[in-house]
Design a binder for these strands. Structure first.
Lengths: 205, 205
DNA sequence: CTGTGTGAAGGCTTTCACAGCC
DNA sequence: GGCTGTGAAAGCCTTCACACAG
């Protein structure tokens, strides 16, 4: 309801969106908070409270209309028009993600270009243009790209990050094992596979 | 101090470990909570409180001895002996991660084997043995593997997950875009790139 | 005087319980 | 009767402020 939707709620709204997709309802009927919350792995009051940020979208006694709910979610999240994304760093992980391109495409994202200090490393099974770093500024500013996926080595991450910010990038999905120092207003999500694994290992008996 | 370290704290302890690594101190000297917290992107009191879970490891007026701290962290997290990991699903993302193997190795993890319904897809630049799914039970139980990375399509994720749990897997790093239904006592960390991107797009002005 | 360790305060999220609408 | 929407309560985590050790 209130303007500033809590970070964690935004996260879960995306999640609910994916869960609805997964349900594969062909426009059919409604879901109850009970059912949907179970799929999403949260408690039902939480789901209801989260969805309340999208306005009164549920019907009491019935549940949530699937189609309507998805529309509202997309609207609230601003997912109707998905932003262009560039990827920087085509090493192991970077080119891996480029090969996974179709996975992103299915979810509505498209990597418009990739950049690397040594673009000739580009392998033949990658369909995205791989350009030298020197072209990054021009490309990003001309096309008004606002999001980037960062896959450079940790040692280069901060300086490449700075370069991105100078050219108007506002959100970064960071795979480099470094916490980026950024000014307020820039969104950074970190994905650190080593930490994920280490974290899991803690819970093994 | 108390036995049950909060989940989020465990997470950050791993993070601090990585930050120390990044500092690259060759056994030299100490770090203050002020400095280390800045690198890790948290506030200094938080860092101190987190580190207090490792016992009295800091020296007042001096800071934290880097070597000692790393030892204590490894001890607390149980990272001294790192567990074996298997990867399931060698599609786009799965084989991408296998190619990234050396990235894991640098952080101390090793994928001991990969499994797929069609293992012949194995490409030549992957050094990890790729075995058919039918061998999974035997491999996992015989070697006592407790951790798995799950990269199968969403439609297969839950059933493969069940198979893993039946064979004694206790922790799963899940890349499938599905929330896995698991009994308590099993740890699951989800990595969903589409959600990360969607989430970031929300914060673009 | 510097910098850790920590009780107490504060803020944010989750959970509960139930009123209200279909 | 069923299920949403939501104030109130509880819980958890973060932040603060300061005592205290080196």
């Amino acid at each position: 309801m209130k303007d500033p939707i809590p970070r964690k709620t935004v996260y879960r709204l995306s999640l609910y969106n994916r869960c609805l997709e997964q349900l594969g309802f062909a426009g059919s009927g409604t879901v109850s908070s009970e059912v949907l919350s179970k799929i999403a792995g949260v408690k039902s009051p939480q789901l209801r409270k989260d969805l309340a940020y999208c306005g009164h979208v549920g019907k009491r006694g019935l549940g949530y209309d699937v189609v309507l709910l998805r529309e509202r979610l997309a609207e609230t999240l601003g997912t109707s028009r998905l932003p262009a994304v560039v990827l920087v760093g085509t090493g192991n992980l970077g080119s891996a993600l480029l090969r996974y391109q179709e996975g992103f495409a299915k979810e509505g994202f498209e990597i418009t270009a990739a950049f690397d200090a040594r673009p000739e490393k580009r392998s033949s099974d990658i369909s995205v243009p791989v350009l030298p770093m020197t072209e990054l500024s021009k490309f990003v500013t001309e096309r008004g790209v606002k999001m980037a996926i960062l896959c450079v080595p940790g040692t280069a991450a901060q300086s490449v990050c700075n370069l991105l910010l100078e050219n108007g990038i506002q959100a970064i999905l960071n795979f480099a094992p470094v916490i980026l120092q950024t000014p307020p207003g820039v969104a950074v999500n970190n994905v650190n596979l080593a930490i994920e694994l280490e974290n899991l290992s803690y819970f093994i008996k």
